[in-house]
Amino acid sequence: MSSIISISGVTKTYATGFKALKEINLDIERGEIFALLGPNGAGKTTLISIVCGIVNRSSGTVTVDGHDIGRDYRAARSLIGLVPQELTIDAFETVWATVNYSRGLFGKASNAAFVEKVLRDLSLWDKKDSKAITLSGGMKRRLMIAKALSHEPRVLFLDEPTAGVDVELRQDMWAMVRRLREDGVTIILTTHYIEEAEAMADRVGVINKGEIILVEGKAELMRKLGRKQMKLELRAPLAAVPDGLSHYSLELSDDGSQLTYTYDNQSDRPGVASLIRDLEAAGIQFRDLDTKNSSLEEIFVSLLRQEP
């Protein structure tokens, strides 16, 4: 069995009647980094909360490494570490006490050496005797991660891990996530920062209005849905795109000095060479040219636009 988390037919309707999730089916593969993307209110946190046991599902089943999260909740939950979005820590506990508490709560025998390693890895060792309330926001975020890692989870959920986090901590976190993956930990992160998914994820799932609208390997997704653009800086501004070039999807900037050609990079005949020949024939000269792939963000935005 390659999937470590298997979600099938999961729905969630809150007491208010709000349907947060509609029929979610999703498999997370062992050892992958999976990014769950979606706008605010799409259902990302609800889905995670259901898998972790914080929110009851209305219907459907979830298994974690083959353990049903209802019937066999102890085995399922002991495999999972969760770093929630909000910084919610008992402010009056010391770093050392609260991380050891988490380890005990998950039924692991105390292991000072392991906890020390976790704290050192997260640059929290100097703060081990400080109370949580005295830590900076970034330090608190590290502490939340330390708590989640204290019990050696096989699956780590990071809910919006880098929201409001400075560049240094963000890079530290990305490095940590890669290290964990090397150790075989499966990582599921939710984010609405697309660049994060782009930099980290093996696979991407897009959730919108309580539905998974797409699950795809990041590379395939970028290849499949990615468009390529070529920008041409013209020597002399044009008033309009000449008629001879109208069969290319060309866009002229307002001041007429830049032409943008959008094409499908999957195509055998993307038309770049012929466009350049035709431009020459039309007597249009350019100073410079630049091509780029559309980012995951652009893909994401266009996906959500397609949604009814």
Binding site: C52, G53, R77, T88, D90
Partner: peptide, 15 residues
């Protein structure tokens, strides 16, 4: 108190 500050999440997600 954990309900109020939100740290109850950990208790609910624990085995």
């Amino acid at each position: 108190f954990p309900k109020f500050v939100g740290s109850i999440y950990e208790l609910l997600s624990a085995p």
